[in-house]
Nucleic acid binder design. Structure first.
Lengths: 115, 115
DNA sequence: TGCTTATATAAACTGTTATTAATATAATGC
DNA sequence: GCATTATATTAATAACAGTTTATATAAGCA
């Protein structure tokens, strides 16, 4: 007999989904990569230099961001140019607000009620 | 001779700060705890039951959230009641928007420019 | 073909962290 | 004081993730 969560919000699949996305962007290198990509696409060697990390490490983190759907890649010659996926960022912002948005706080907090 | 990041945004201390906070909330159990606390304060045993996790685990995650300043605790008898810290959540939302807000995307993306 | 450059992949190492089990603390009531 | 309840802490385990080193792929060029 296995226990089940009794809080509805705790069983919300969107929460699990958001936590996975947050895990991806919570690595400092990856968050810094995202920051730089707001200014436009960058190739791996630019990320490497811009963040002062090794080439395999830059490639690895870009790969994680790509798997998560946050960035996409365009190949040109021997170079790979990475850029943000605007829709993914919009979705991330939306889900963050929906789950952790400050507007969810009641005027009088804390209070006790069912969840 | 050590290399230094050449991207200003990559050296931004706020980015490092945000990544640390995201790491705290990216754990699924902790994100679920935060969700339930939006409805009001909860004692450890309520969190434990509500999420179907063990008592020491609930206590541990609440402790991590507390160290991060996201929740605070009120002791009453043998019980500990945890609640959100509204200011911390507001700050988190603000920094998230400042660094990852969709408004930062230029109308025409991707484009190439200095960062 | 061979050489260089850019990127990706694989393996190994390391450090971190979630989780569990066991134990300790601290308050309450008999 | 003793037993019970709620919570916190500690130690041990196990899984995971970031990093480095080494190697592979693949395009461009002489």
């Amino acid at each position: 007999m296995e226990k089940k969560p009794t809080f509805k919000c705790a069983a919300n699949p969107e929460v699990k989904e958001l936590s996975e996305m947050l895990k991806v962007i919570s690595d400092p290198s990856r968050l810094r990569i995202l920051c730089t990509l707001f200014f436009g696409e960058k190739c791996v060697c630019e990320v490497e230099e811009g963040l002062a990390i090794s080439q395999p490490l830059a490639s690895h983190h870009l790969g994680v961001l790509r798997e998560a759907g946050l960035v996409e890649v365009r190949k040109e010659g021997t170079s790979s140019y990475y850029s943000l996926v605007p829709e993914a960022l919009q979705k991330l912002n939306r889900e963050f607000r929906e789950i952790l948005g400050e507007h969810k706080l009641p005027d009088r907090y804390p209070e006790r009620s069912r969840c």
